[in-house]
Lab assay of single mutants.
Amino acid sequence: SEEWVEIALRLLELGREANINGTILNLHKEEIEELIRRLLKRI
């Protein structure tokens, strides 16, 4: 399964939302940290 691709796409999506909203992603901080942890486990 290409889970890391899904994770990377989700991170990009959150990054785009952050640019549009001008936020520092506090809302998504925990989700982002969890996604990155899952991503690093696969490398």
Rank of each mutant, 00 (worst) to 15 (best):
W4Q: 00
L35N: 00
S1M: 13
L35W: 07
A18W: 09
L40Y: 05
E34A: 06
L25F: 03
A18H: 08
G22V: 12
K29C: 15
V5G: 02
E13W: 10
L25A: 13
L12Q: 02
N26E: 14
K41W: 07
E17K: 05
L25N: 09
G15A: 15
I7L: 08
R37P: 01
E30Q: 08
T23S: 13
E33G: 04
E30R: 08
L39Q: 00
I36L: 06
N26L: 13
L35D: 00
R37I: 10
E3D: 11
L12G: 01
L35P: 00
L35T: 01
I32D: 00
W4T: 02
R10W: 11
W4D: 01
N26G: 08
K29I: 14
K29L: 15
I20Q: 05
T23Y: 14
G15M: 15
L11V: 04
L35M: 06
E6N: 11
T23G: 12
N19F: 15
I32F: 08
L9V: 06
L27G: 12
L9F: 07
N26H: 10
L9Y: 06
E30M: 07
R37T: 04
R42T: 13
R10K: 10
K29E: 09
L14F: 05
N21A: 13
R38W: 13
T23L: 14
L12S: 02
E13L: 11
R10I: 12
L25M: 08
I7E: 01
E3K: 10
K29D: 09
I20A: 06
E17P: 07
H28E: 09
L11D: 00
E3R: 13
N21W: 14
E3Y: 09
V5T: 04
E34L: 11
L14Y: 06
I43N: 05
S1W: 15
L27A: 09
L40P: 00
S1G: 09
T23D: 11
N26Q: 11
I7Y: 02
I32K: 00
H28D: 12
E30T: 09
R10A: 12
L40M: 08
E13T: 03
T23E: 12
E17H: 06
E34N: 14
L11Y: 03
R37C: 11
I43C: 06
L9T: 03
K41M: 10
I36Y: 03
L40N: 02
A8F: 14
E13V: 04
V5S: 02
I43P: 03
N26T: 04
E33W: 14
H28V: 12
E17V: 09
I20E: 05
I7D: 02
L25Q: 10
E2N: 14
E31S: 01
R16P: 04
N19G: 08
R38D: 06
I43K: 03
E31N: 04
H28I: 15
N21H: 06
T23H: 13
E31M: 05
E2I: 14
V5Q: 05
K41R: 14
L14S: 02
I7N: 00
R42W: 15
V5K: 04
N19T: 13
E30P: 02
L40D: 03
L12P: 00
L40E: 05
E30K: 14
N26M: 07
E34T: 07
H28S: 14
E13G: 12
I32M: 04
I43H: 02
A18N: 03
E13H: 02
G22T: 12
L40H: 06
L14M: 04
N26C: 15
I7M: 05
E17A: 11
L11K: 00
E6T: 08
W4F: 09
E33R: 12
K29Q: 11
K29G: 12
A18V: 13
L39G: 00
R42Y: 15
N19Q: 11
L14D: 01
I36V: 08
E30N: 04
N26Y: 11
S1N: 05
G15E: 02
V5W: 14
L11R: 00
L9W: 07
E6L: 12
S1V: 14
L14W: 10
E2S: 09
T23I: 11
I7K: 02
N21G: 08
R16N: 08
G22A: 12
E6S: 11
I7V: 05
I32P: 00
N26R: 01
I43M: 06
E34W: 04
R38S: 07
L39F: 06
W4M: 09
L39A: 04
I24H: 10
R38N: 11
I7G: 02
I43A: 05
E6M: 06
R38T: 05
E3H: 13
A8E: 03
R37L: 05
I32R: 00
I43Y: 07
G22E: 13
E13F: 11
A8M: 11
K41N: 05
L39K: 00
G22I: 14
W4H: 01
L27E: 08
R42I: 14
E31C: 15
K41T: 10
R37D: 11
I20P: 05
L14T: 02
A8L: 15
A18I: 14
L11G: 01
E13N: 01
E3T: 09
E6W: 11
R38G: 07
A18Y: 03
E6H: 11
L25E: 07
G15L: 15
H28P: 09
L14G: 02
I20V: 07
H28R: 02
I20S: 08
L25P: 11
R42F: 14
W4N: 00
I20H: 06
E2G: 12
L9D: 02
N26I: 11
L40V: 10
G22F: 04
L14I: 11
K41V: 10
L27F: 08
N19I: 15
L14P: 01
T23Q: 08
E33P: 01
W4C: 10
E33Y: 13
G15W: 15
I32N: 00
G22L: 14
T23V: 09
E30W: 04
E2P: 11
H28W: 15
R37H: 06
L12D: 01
S1P: 09
H28G: 06
I24F: 08
N21Q: 07
